[in-house]
């Protein structure tokens, strides 16, 4: 158990460099804060444009398609579809650059 030949992952397989399969509670909390921040920015832009009687296609599309943080199911917030994974779901933190991109929609039925 102790000593130089103890069976650890790094000794068995060499490099141990993997992300845990699920997010921690603070990670989920910060993810929710980021989702809300994006929601508030979209709302700000929408309010500013509608004061002038303007709108854009991308804004309308976002409002029509994207759920807000409150509307999202926990499953969609913290996991995303992946066809290669057993159960077709992986943690959203496995997505490259996941703190700086929006990943909200998943294929229906999965």
């Amino acid at each position: 158990m102790f000593g130089p030949f103890r069976p650890t992952f790094s000794l068995f397989g060499g490099l141990l460099w993997k992300r845990p399969w699920r997010m921690s509670r603070p990670q989920k909390y910060r993810l929710r804060q980021r989702l809300r921040r994006v929601d508030s920015i979209v709302a700000t832009v929408d309010a500013a444009l509608s004061k002038k009687g303007l709108t854009t296609r991308s804004l309308e599309r976002w409002k029509a398609e994207m759920p807000t943080e409150e509307e999202m199911r926990p499953k969609d917030k913290y996991t995303m579809f992946d066809r290669k994974v057993k159960g077709y779901r992986k943690g959203v933190h496995k997505l490259p650059k996941w703190t700086r991109i929006s990943q909200r929609l998943n294929p229906p039925g999965y």
């Binding site: 994006v38 979209v42 832009v45 500013a48 444009l49 854009t56 976002w62 929006s102």
Partner: peptide, 8 residues
């Protein structure tokens, strides 16, 4: 607005 939404 379009720029902002692209990098929101």
């Amino acid at each position: 607005a379009g720029f902002i939404l692209h990098v929101k």
